[in-house]
Nucleic acid binder design. Structure first.
Length: 497
RNA sequence: GGUCGCGUGGCCGAGUGGCUAGGCACAGCUCUGCAAAAGCUGCUACAGCGGUUCGAAUCCGCUCGCGACCUCCA
């Protein structure tokens, strides 16, 4: 038996600000592009949330039977610090500070990023392209934009002409901006003397001899603008128009708006059919960001070594915590919420372990067959409704109650119902939500289990003699070393604290 | 200042016109030698004010509070 949920899937398309049925351009194939990290420093928890949201999308599309080509880039050049365009390249800056070759910085933080993704069980994409490996494509795209007349060169740099583009095409649709309003709200124009309009953005930036990262181009030595890589690489791997583009809410403007403009200017096609944006992780109501100093690294999170953390939390606790909130809502971090998630997750995973040991009842209750089926349907419906993981989790807890009741002999499941429940429950928890069991329990370690079983036997003997003091002493000593005994109807089980 | 969004029970957090989300916490009960676990039950909210409606957490208006974007950020 397998878990093979059916659509239709509905997702919130940020472009139309509405929930729409997802219909791929060329089923069963789905093209998915997600803006990846700029690898100039350690990722923080807020970054993790974003990649987790799209991990769930990727997993659910796959569960629905789609063949997903999932492209998530690594930005390794072109992302400037500070304001306007005189900022330094983030990676070059880091290289200078750490006295490393820029590519060493890139490698170091790319490795770190991958480690973090693995720790949180976020699946790798199908293709993970880097900007520096696609300079030819980016230069070619700039040439197409120049040829179509929506860009101009200035002193070795190339800029996108936003006012000209906006006069002939929709601009600002995704983010709800209007060019006149943007112009009215423009601040200082320092360092922008090369641009014709403050709204224009760099496609290619000239680099002088002091720059660490530069490449030859038709306009001289330089480097690509930040927005360009996503357009060039999504076009290369997913085509001129593809299904879904995702990223954090904070990328909507200007990054994604610029991507649309570039693609339309270069190739005359609207690049993306569904835009999806994950919301922010906040701390005390404020966005977690490196510049706010309220972010922490996954390592700090796990060890608890950060001023915001009362103690450490396991990666799966964090994953579960985040999935209890819809990706489109802001999620506020707090120790209390994390601790609540930790307990809830443990109850969920304990039920999953119990489910595997459950045997069909001798006298099944027929009404439970329908109940199991309805539960599965509600779970699938929750995911199809814009990846509503909090509702899915709520439904799964209904399953937890059923499983525990069956274990206690209060609910009698038929063979088929049990098999059905096992199949979809495990698939949803492990494959769709991507939750791994972190507890080390009976059976995982033969030596340990053998030893604990011996103690359990000794305690059972003591209890049989009604020597409860001796029995309790065994239980207390095991508890001291982190082993919890649980007396059930069918004997004693144990697990780690 | 402009644009957009949010304000749900002790805490976290779903829900967009009627029908109790769920988790955690708390209280009682059952089970148990005790404990833990588990099950059952209870606590039942929707920022404020006004309006629309037979009926609003859900729609509209105003007020208050908060946030995001507008400049790099997942």
């Amino acid at each position: 038996m397998s878990f093979s949920p059916q659509g239709p899937l509905h997702i919130t398309n940020t472009l139309t600000r509405s929930k729409q049925e997802f219909v791929p351009l060329a089923p069963p194939h789905v093209g998915l592009y997600v803006c990846g990290p700029t690898v100039y420093s350690d990722v923080h928890l807020g970054n993790v949330r974003s990649f987790l949201s799209f991990d769930i999308l990727f997993r659910w599309l796959t569960a629905l039977g789609y063949k997903v080509r999932y492209v998530r880039n690594i930005t390794d050049v072109g992302h400037l610090t500070g304001d306007v365009d005189e900022g330094e390249d983030k990676i070059a800056k880091r290289a200078r500070l750490e006295q490393l070759e820029p590519m060493e910085v890139v490698q170091k933080y790319t490795n770190g990023f991958h480690d973090v993704m693995r720790v949180f069980n976020i699946l790798p994409p199908s293709i993970e392209p880097t900007a520096t490996a696609h300079l030819i494509e980016q230069i070619a795209m700039v040439e197409r934009i120049l040829a179509s007349g929506y860009a101009y060169t200035a002193n070795g740099s190339v800029y996108f002409d936003v006012p000209k583009f906006a006069a002939e095409h929709p601009y600002g649709e995704l983010s709800g901006r209007r060019v006149d309003e943007l112009l009215a709200n423009t601040r200082d124009t320092e360092g922008m003397e090369e641009k014709r309009s403050p709204l224009d953005f760099a496609l290619w930036k000239r680099a002088d001899h002091t720059h660490l990262m530069k490449w030859p181009s038709p306009w001289g030595e330089g480097f690509p603008g930040w927005h360009l890589e996503c357009s060039a690489m999504s076009t290369k791997y997913l085509g001129l128009t593809f299904d879904i583009h995702g990223g954090g809410m904070d990328l909507k403007f200007p990054h994604h708006e610029c991507e649309i403009a570039q693609s339309v200017a270069a190739d005359g096609q609207v690049p993306v059919r569904y835009w999806m944006h994950g919301n922010m992780l906040t701390v005390n109501g404020r966005k977690m960001a490196k510049s706010e100093g309220n972010g922490f690294t996954p390592e700090e999170l796990i060890t608890g070594n950060h001023k915001l953390l009362e103690r450490g939390y396991s990666p799966m606790t964090v994953r579960f915590f985040m999935l209890q909130c819809h990706y489109g809502s802001t999620l506020d971090f707090s120790n209390a919420a994390l601790q609540a998630a930790e307990k809830g997750l443990e109850r969920l995973m304990a039920a999953l372990r119990g489910l595997e040991k459950l045997a069909p009842a001798a006298k099944p209750m027929p009404e439970l067959d329908a109940q199991v089926q309805e539960l599965e349907q509600r779970c699938v419906a929750a995911m199809n409704d814009d990846l509503n993981t909090p509702v899915l989790i709520a439904e799964l807890f209904e399953g937890v109650r059923l499983i525990n009741s069956a274990r206690d002999g209060k609910a009698a499941l038929s063979g088929p119902a049990l098999e059905r429940l096992r199949t979809f429950f495990a698939a949803l928890v492990r494959d769709v939500l991507g939750l791994r069991d972190e507890s080390v329990a009976m059976g995982d370690d033969k030596l340990l289990d053998g030893l604990v079983q011996e103690f359990i036997r000794q305690r059972a003997e003591a209890r049989a003699r009604r020597d409860f003091a001796a029995g309790d002493a065994i239980r207390d000593r095991l508890a001291e070393v982190g082993i919890i005994l649980k007396d059930g109807k069918d004997g004693t089980t144990w697990e780690r604290a």
